[in-house]
Design a protein around this nucleic acid. Structure first.
Lengths: 111, 111
DNA sequence: ATCACTTAGTTACTTTATGTAACTGATATT
DNA sequence: AATATCAGTTACATAAAGTAACTAAGTGAT
């Protein structure tokens, strides 16, 4: 007998896309790190101690492509490159605010 | 010469843990799906059309272990197993609210 | 001139995570 | 007896991420 499986509500594609962006490994932490201001490659790399340069470089490209991160080249010697959040990127801040609230309410404090 | 890299603020470990949970592939979508009420394995599987049974089963175990998802066995024939969110899990709702807001403001609507 | 050092990455290679399809076992329907 | 259900598991293949060495253009030290 065919059992009735309730037809699922199709998910909003924009919401799905947002989740896809945010739940790619490292993306959220990179954006969160950039919320504290423009930073250079090595700075971000050091702030997120276990990320590899390879993946950081991939993620920054993807985020730039999404219009969330800006990349500005200062032709000094040696070259200086600054990564920062666009308005679209800064608009993600309230999401992190809610994550912070949830984590402080529901996750155990480390001794 | 050793250049001064500003010492990064160490990230709050609870916040980091929350991001780790939420940014594991599929986790967010599973939790979001369960926000609409208790559901069985096959229902969740059908609602998230590209997830494999294997990974769904892994994620549900992890989320149960985190205390976010509850698993209740009804010893009917065939057995019925219901997955639902705990209070800790339902408390994640505001995060999804903010993601929804951001996505409707900043992501292009599909034609 | 040569060596060491900088920045912002890239390359080749390895390990881990995820996807795919077939399969399980207890029971029911046809 | 064959087929179906549910809630998964298993073996195998592919994709993603981690690791360490390397690059180019230039500076400063020896």
């Amino acid at each position: 007998m065919m059992e009735q499986i309730p037809m699922p509500m199709p998910m909003c594609p924009r919401f799905e896309k947002a989740v896809e962006i945010l739940s790619k490994r490292w993306t959220s932490l990179i954006v969160f790190q950039l919320l504290s201001g423009p930073q250079r490659f090595a700075q971000i790399d050091h702030a997120l101690p276990n990320i590899s340069g390879k993946v950081l470089s991939e993620r920054l490209k993807e985020l730039e492509h999404e219009g969330i991160v800006r990349r500005v080249v200062f032709p000094e010697i040696p070259v200086r490159i600054e990564y920062s959040l666009s308005e679209k990127g800064r608009a993600l801040a309230p999401i992190f605010g809610e994550i912070a609230k949830w984590s402080s309410e529901w996750l155990p404090a480390p001794e």
